[in-house]
């Protein structure tokens, strides 16, 4: 299985390569990708440099172009596809039909991976993307159980990539308007979720803090409580008179213990989430998964998860908690 790691800037790309990523995925400094955060992502020159760095070491670079352009902005996404081809990206990761169509007609030799944002969860959906746009790989949304992933590996027309580790979108990717409902900033259209400019922290006299997103109260914290980033899905709300994380707790997906099953199912690649994270995260998480994959390859039958791996991953997890998430039925 290939290890696909995130990079939000050139140092992170170099760190991912040094720590053993087979491929690194990146984005441009605009709304063409789903991590369009201030201070993040690659200029053309940096992307050029990053590709040279990776290719010199036998690794691949994928460009995420996985947001949804409206008609007026479609040319900008086309230009980004052209840029990926000119700079020599090994693949684009795209979700939107017009972007995939343009890439398949204009640069047929450049591989097209279906992004997780494309919300394709079944063999017919994958068949559509394969027949229509010649995708050569698909990233599955984080909604399927391990049994469903195994089954889909048998019926999919293309190799599959699944999320192995990182922050967990509780909603089907590409199908969540909670951020735009509250702030107008849309993951699909603008590549952002709950942007920082709408976040307001209030410190109270008793040491408690509250956090609002565009004036909507997302959560309140006791002085001793750790406070996470206020996305709607990870806030605490009142339902039937009780206050709790009604949608999801702040936690990270960690599938390390499923590695043998994913390998046996024929999963082509494992994806690490976190282009918004720094060099320390990329290094630690990539190194851990590299080690786990190498040991599995050397002796699949003797493989077990090691406590050192799990503690390294937990240290870098959101809220220092991890879950098997949707891979495990109990989570649903």
């Amino acid at each position: 299985m290939q290890l696909v790691c995130p990079a939000g800037n050139l140092p992170a790309l170099q760190a991912a390569v040094a720590a053993g990523a087979d491929a690194v995925y990146v984005g441009l400094r605009d709304e063409t990708n789903a991590r369009a955060f201030p201070g993040l992502n690659f200029s053309d020159a940096e992307l050029h440099q990053g590709i040279a760095h990776a290719h010199a070491r036998g690794r691949k670079v994928y460009l995420a172009l996985n947001t949804y352009p409206d008609s007026a902005r479609l040319k900008q996404w086309h230009a980004a596809v052209d840029k990926a081809a000119v700079l020599g990206c090994d693949a684009i990761i795209a979700a939107e039909l017009a972007v995939l169509d343009y890439a398949s007609r204009t640069h047929p030799a450049m591989a097209r991976h279906l992004s997780v944002q494309g919300s394709a969860t079944t063999a017919p959906a994958l068949r559509y993307m394969h027949e229509r746009f010649g995708i050569s790989r698909a990233v599955l949304p984080r909604v399927l159980s391990i049994q469903q992933v195994e089954r889909l590996c048998e019926t999919s027309p293309v190799p599959l990539e699944v999320f192995a580790f990182g922050s967990l979108c509780i909603m089907v990717e590409g199908r969540c308007q909670l951020s735009s409902y509250v702030t107008g900033a849309s993951p699909n259209r603008h590549g952002v979720c709950s942007p920082a400019k709408y976040v307001r922290w209030d410190e109270h006299d008793d040491g408690r803090r509250s956090v609002r997103l565009n004036d909507v109260l997302i959560d309140k914290f006791e002085p001793s409580e750790p406070a996470g980033y206020p996305t709607v899905c990870k806030g605490r709300f009142d339902v039937r008179g009780e206050t709790f994380h009604a949608l999801e707790e702040p936690t990270s997906l960690n599938t390390l213990e499923l590695l043998p099953r994913l390998a046996k199912a024929g999963v082509a690649a494992l994806k690490i989430e976190g282009r918004q994270r720094g060099v320390a995260y990329v290094t630690a998480v990539t190194r851990t998964w590299r080690d786990a994959l190498d040991r599995y390859r050397a002796a699949p039958d003797a493989w077990t998860t090691q406590p050192a791996w799990q503690s390294a991953l937990t240290r870098h997890a959101e809220g220092h908690q991890t879950t098997l998430g949707p891979y495990h039925r109990r989570w649903h």
Binding site: M171, Q177, A246, E248, W331
Partner: peptide, 16 residues
Amino acid sequence: RLPLSFSARCFTARAL
């Protein structure tokens, strides 16, 4: 009411 998002998780079951 606008349908805003979908998940693998059932939030009604979670609330109950």
